[in-house]
Amino acid sequence: MIYPARRLGFAVLVLWAAYTVSFAVLFLLSDPVATLVARASDGASVTPADLAALKARYGFDQPLVVQYLERLGAAVRGDLGTSFVSGQPVGATIADALPPTLQIATAGLVLAVVFGAGVALVATYTRHRWLAQTLMGLPSLAVSLPVFWVGLMLVQLFSFQLGWLPAVGARGPEALILPAVTLALPTGALIAQVLVKSMSTALAEPYVTTARAKGVGPVAVHLRHALGNAAIPALTVLGYVAGNLLAGTVVVETVFTRPGLGRITVEAVADQDVPLVQGVVLFAAVVFVVVNLVVDLIYPLLDPRVTQAVPA
């Protein structure tokens, strides 16, 4: 079982590199000590003793290499440091913010897959040109709209004009509908675009002609022959889709004033709360890596050629 082991090794490498990149960006490009000082002193001057104490508390008194190694070691053990603002551990802060975000992300993913795949399958199946062209136009329209604006327009229409759904907050399942739809829009469009492309490619392949020459019906050709092949490239964007959803919550949670991971990210950036921002970036990388590992495991089930091929 060398193949899974290699993939796992690569996943660990990506995570390590993601840590290093985010460390370089956040701890080298900016001056976290200055941020800390500004926050602690509230504008008043700081005595050298206070400064030293502050540095020691957050580990900034060490040389950079030592800081990097110590922080990396702690991160491996699950300790991502403490927030500059709240003083809480970063890991716990993210864990607390996760449940509401998971709710809209899951709802958004379901909507995105259902509508994205639905649009793609109908658009490539129908023999009515106008219907196909309308459906194929939808994804490119959806990716052109600013997500924050779509959210606000939905609120204006469904909450303020019609009064059907709550505008803000996270109470009850009704409050989930508008954020989930907003989040699903660009993701669903992405899924639809990828699937339309791979379905069109598959339908033009000679093996589809072979199937039709056998007398196989159109639905069976579409689902049994074309989709079986088209699903393979569509699967590769799944990691990207997951990251996309996570990133989308940053905007959506702000628009709908919901608590969650997106909100704490926005606030952490505004406060230049470096450890918390790094925690969120690392969390996104973990999600990406885990999703891709799962995809790698599913791959051989869908594509018999993969098990034979030597991994690149």
């Binding site: 000679p206 093996y207 072979t210 199937a211 020459a213 056998k214 007398g215 196989v216 869908l302 594509d303």
Partner: peptide, 18 residues
């Protein structure tokens, strides 16, 4: 398939790979 059978041109791509 029943009354007319087709032998296609390129065997490399004329069978469903999956």
């Amino acid at each position: 398939g029943a009354r007319i059978g087709l032998v296609p041109q390129d065997p490399g791509v004329s069978l469903n790979p999956v």
